[in-house]
Design a protein around this nucleic acid. Sequence first.
RNA 1: GCACCGGUGCCCGAGCGGACCAAGGGAACGGCCUGCAAAGCCGUAAAGCCGCGGGUUCAAAUCCCGCCCGGUGCUCCA
Length: 456
Amino acid sequence: MLRLTDSLTGDKVEFTPRDSGKASVYWCGPTVYDAPHLGHARSTLAFDILVRYLRWTGLDVTAVSNITDIDDKIIARAADEGTTEPELARRFEDVFIAEMDRLDVAHPDVRPRATEYVDAMLDVIGQLVDRGMAYATDSGVYFDVDRLDGYGALAGQTPDQLREGAGARVEVDDDKADPLDFALWKAAKPGEPSWDSPWGPGRPGWHIECVAMSLDLLGDGFDIHGGGDDLVFPHHENERAECLGCDRPFARLWVHNGMVQVGAEKMSKSLGNFKTLAELLDEWDPRALRLLVLQTHYRKTMEIGPATLATAATALERLDGFARRAAAAGLPHADADAGTVDRFREAMDDDLGTAAAVAIMFDAVRDANRALDAGDTDTTAALSAAVTELAGVLGLRLVADSTAGDDDAEVDELVEARAAAKEAGNYAEADRIRDELTARGIVLEDTPTGTTWRRA
RNA sequence: GCACCGGUGCCCGAGCGGACCAAGGGAACGGCCUGCAAAGCCGUAAAGCCGCGGGUUCAAAUCCCGCCCGGUGCUCCA
């Protein structure tokens, strides 16, 4: 039974779906005003892994993750670039999806766009106004925080505590009755995109889109709502307020992933650090990033940089190497080793303990290598099947064959020529060929049974 | 200032009351393999007590109190 840490209470609780045998999961996707960064990758991977695991345990999962395609930053950036908001938003949405595809992230079942849910948002705002939970002014419609019991529960603070900090970083808006009140609907300003509403032309405030979309697609009281830690307040706090303000049950469980750190020097091109996800994925195998993320618990702040990626890439190579070795061994078909799978499930059930789960996978690799050395192909086959299955659940595709290329035949010839030279004792020639292949990015692997090769 | 999350070997990072498990990965060292290498595989050691100081307990890296340090949030950032 899966147990997850609920951000609302801080407790680890058993995950019991609203509808038996099913699971409904919503997590906050990006606001598409720029290219995705490491944080988007970490968060998206975290929920990809959650969804994959839920499916593996047999649940019928409906996964929804939004695209916020209208907001201040999008408007500002579109103006800067002299383009339209829809064009800009669509462009960065495409980039986001393309980068996530490189990471082998499974697409959510539904990826709603905020601009397609304006009517639904207006409906929620209407409910709040009707119930007296919100009020309209010249500048928009605001949620009245005083009218809701327990505002601040997600943030772990009382309204008074929040008021003390209000304005600490951002200026407080003018005609709100209380600094904590927040905009549900913003009155249109000249030159900005707007929609008609009972409160005049305008555009949605933040928060409201996720409520409208999650409730519409997953229904009241859906199972899991997640996102990055930085969204806990105010974003999720306010979503929660909006839903509860309508007297409707919101998410049953809140899951938040930790932030990414890139060292004291921060991300900076001039320092040679990584700037965008695309740059990083150009340089490293995307699977190395996934493995790195897996090796850290999802709730913990983690460091991503060249050093940690390099170790992950080496570790990944160990897995691929095993996959190659297993493929070459021509193992008999076998069911996945039950002990390994059980331990994996146990680790994952404990708040998605992916680090422990990965450790179990590496244990299986070591045991399998040992069994193979000992000539125990049955044991090797069972462990190998387990490794493949677990890697699959974690979204790691192991590569057993990396020879494919245009010059395969030529490389084969050179490898044979080298073998012949070695046979004849002409080591100078053999080494010359070896150097030539190395320069071409071909890695030779001499084994007792002959030489294999692959591309680096 | 308030809230939350952290501080574990050379590095990254599991563990969060009790068994010889302080995992796993990287690095290091040794061995196998090799014409020599590389790659690969196997193995080994390594944290004198898990930020500091108290406390609770038969038992704490794991719970409580205080302190120090880092990160995040406090209205639009995953």
